[in-house]
């Protein structure tokens, strides 16, 4: 019983972090119709910004916004100077379909090697603001700690803020219109270029939070070669696909599903399936419900 509860709690916490990553992927997909494989790399870089803030100012609550702002700035920069140029150049030709994929992979490689050469390949440490020692329930210790509670609450608040932003402002509509039909969006008075940059920045900030939380939720260390980073790399994409790629709610559900499934597989089946489990989940989803759990039907072919 206690094991079941623990598995659930671990899965939900991890899942909420994957959800943030998935939201980042969805935001970029919505604004430019590109799957940004460099998203995890950008999250990595932002986490290092957060780490620097930690070192100098010694407060997690300063480090987190620093990471977010840094992540948003990096994303905006990439969209402004790189993606615009790329999408213009690769609009036609034999590899036009795969050029953005290849380019974001290249970006991932560049960011990885840059962070490695600046901060070294070894782990950096970020300590969470509250303890990660589990609450006790009678004689048992739960796998759920004040830190995990904090992560969960923060993610919920962020997701609510984001969806509020989308529903109560015209921003969500602008983002989608710009993605589906830039020309009609422009004729309707939307500054499409600005909207795209905005979408990327929001994604960058969201990924930054995921990176920071992934670090403190693990053993507090992070590096380009760490398992935490590899997990971010695949989980965001997979969770986003589970959710149908086009929906924020879907991204959250996708993240939670992924987190729970991984957690249960590790606890009840075999811990060596750690890395292959996400892949299998992805395949199952793609085969059984190719439109995602909540998804646009035609998205798969886009």
């Amino acid at each position: 019983m206690i094991q079941l509860i623990n598995t659930l709690l671990i899965g939900i916490t991890a899942g909420s972090i994957y959800a943030l990553m998935a939201i980042a992927i969805v935001l970029v997909w919505r604004s430019t119709r590109v799957i940004n494989f460099a998203q995890a790399g950008m999250a990595l870089l932002s986490t290092y910004f957060g780490y620097e803030a930690m070192v100098h100012l010694n407060s997690f609550w300063i480090a987190l916004p620093v990471a977010m702002i840094g992540g948003a700035a990096v994303a905006a920069f990439i969209e402004l100077v790189f993606m615009r140029f790329l999408l213009k150049r690769s609009a036609h030709g034999a590899i036009s379909g795969v050029a953005p994929i290849i380019a974001t992979l290249g970006l991932l490689g560049v960011i990885r090697s840059l962070t490695s050469s600046i901060w070294g390949g070894q782990d950096v440490r970020i300590v969470g603001p509250v303890s990660n020692v589990g609450y006790s329930l009678g004689a048992n210790t739960l796998a759920f700690s004040p830190l995990k509670l904090l992560i969960l609450v923060t993610v919920i608040v962020l997701v609510l803020l984001l969806s509020l932003l989308f529903q109560k402002s015209n921003m969500g509509l602008s983002l989608r219109a710009s993605a589906f039909s830039p020309e009609i969006a422009r004729l309707s008075g939307i500054r499409v270029n600005g909207v795209r940059t905005l979408g990327w920045s929001l994604a960058g900030a969201s990924g930054a939070v995921a990176g920071m939380f992934q670090t403190v939720n693990g053993n507090g260390s992070f590096s380009p070669d760490s398992i935490e980073f590899s997990l971010l790399l695949v989980s965001g994409f997979i969770a986003a696909v589970i959710g149908g790629l086009d929906s924020l709610v879907g991204a959250v559900i996708g993240g939670l599903v992924l987190g729970l499934v991984i957690s249960f597989v590790l606890m009840y089946i075999n811990s060596s399936l750690f890395f292959i489990a996400p892949f299998v989940i992805l395949l199952i989803v793609l085969f059984v419900r190719p439109q995602g759990i909540i998804g646009a039907k035609a998205a798969r072919r886009a």
């Binding site: 015209n170 509509l173 602008s174 989608r176 219109a177 589906f180 039909s181 020309e183 009609i184 969006a185 004729l187 309707s188 008075g189 939307i190 646009a296």
Partner: peptide, 21 residues
């Protein structure tokens, strides 16, 4: 027929007024 097929009728209409805030 310049509409955005993925959006609802209502959203397509709102689009026209979006810059007026």
């Amino acid at each position: 027929k310049a509409v955005i097929p993925e959006l609802t009728v209502s959203e397509n209409l709102e689009l026209g007024a979006i810059w007026r805030k």
